[in-house]
Amino acid sequence: MTLTYRPGDTLAHRLDPRTKLFVQAAFALAVFARTGPRGLAAFTALVAGILLAGRVSPADALRGFAPALPFLVVAPLARTVVLSPAGSALPVGVDPAAAVEPALASYRVLLVLLVSATYLRTTPVRESRAAIERVVPGRLGRFLGVGVGLVFRFFPLLLADLRRVREASNARLGDRRSLPDRMRVVAAAGVRRAFARSDRLALALRARCFAWNPTLPELRFARRDYPAHCLGVALAASAFL
């Protein structure tokens, strides 16, 4: 499942995108500064509240970040494998205690991804671009805003293309091939579709007279944004206290 914007009337939908970006950045800063089990337990409860504020299912969020999850699982497992000294009966040993710190780091990344999922699900692409261009002034801000807008629109299409290629390959008994062959077929078809979509995107931008300074939606802070700002300030301050 691809994490894209869905219209709604939740608290997270009604917040200003600049507020959500600030809280997201402050949360990432705080969660990597507070690495103990007690701090992670508090951040887990906070993430549950953030998901509830946007009515985002944790299962949907995890499915949206499915390509990154294997890396979060493999990293702690890889740290448990240690090379034994020369002359030992077993050349490779297992040290479960070595996986504790990588497992905590993977869990911190997972919490940040869940917060990001709420932002992606509750924020339109145009509002994200407007927020970035207002936070970062000048041509650099416009460049970053355009980049974010294109990535948010283009990346889900690429994932959908890869999923369709894999399903079509399996329908043609491609699942009976070896893993390298399946990876080669899906990757080659995915690259071809990515270049084709890039050509169509460039043509569409020229046809629509792409401009660096389009009319973006007006952003305005409301009263409901101030408690969220206080939460962001508290999270950022907790990283330095």
Score class of each variant (00 low, 15 high):
Y226W: 13
P17N: 14
A25E: 08
L29Q: 13
R224N: 05
S106R: 02
A131V: 01
L173N: 11
R163W: 04
L231M: 10
D225K: 07
L157W: 03
T122C: 15
V92P: 06
L201Y: 07
L40T: 01
I132R: 00
R197K: 12
A26S: 15
T4K: 01
G138I: 03
L83A: 07
F65V: 15
A117D: 03
S57P: 10
R163Q: 13
V115N: 00
G49P: 06
A89R: 02
E133Q: 12
S238P: 11
V148C: 11
L46R: 04
T118V: 12
L203I: 04
L83N: 01
R38H: 09
T215A: 12
V151Y: 07
H229N: 07
S106H: 02
L216Q: 09
G39F: 02
E167M: 06
L158G: 09
F43D: 03
F221L: 15
V185T: 06
A68Y: 09
L162C: 15
T118A: 06
R129W: 02
R6C: 03
G93E: 08
A204Y: 01
P58A: 13
L113I: 07
L144V: 04
T80W: 00
V115R: 00
A68E: 13
V100Q: 09
A105C: 03
A68C: 08
A41H: 05
A12E: 04
L110Y: 06
E101S: 11
V148W: 04
R192I: 08
M1I: 00
V73L: 09
V94G: 10
A59F: 00
T19E: 11
L140M: 09
K20E: 09
V125K: 10
L104I: 06
V94C: 13
R208F: 05
L159R: 07
L51N: 01
R193I: 04
F195W: 03
I132K: 00
L150K: 03
L150G: 07
R224F: 03
E133Y: 02
V125D: 11
V82H: 02
R153M: 08
V185K: 00
Y5A: 02
A236L: 15
S178D: 14
S84R: 03
T122V: 04
P102C: 07
G54D: 00
R18T: 11
A117R: 01
G145M: 04
A97V: 11
R63N: 00
L231H: 11
L203Y: 04
A131F: 00
R206K: 10
G190S: 01
S84Y: 00
R176Q: 15
H229R: 10
A98V: 08
L11V: 14
A194R: 01
A204I: 10
F221W: 14
L21S: 06
R55T: 07
P70R: 10
A130Y: 01
L159W: 11
T4C: 08
L120F: 09
R172L: 14
T80M: 12
L159S: 08
A25D: 01
L157T: 14
T80S: 10
A86S: 04
R134C: 02
R134D: 09
A168Q: 13
G36T: 13
A187H: 03
R121A: 13
C230Q: 13
N213S: 12
D199F: 07
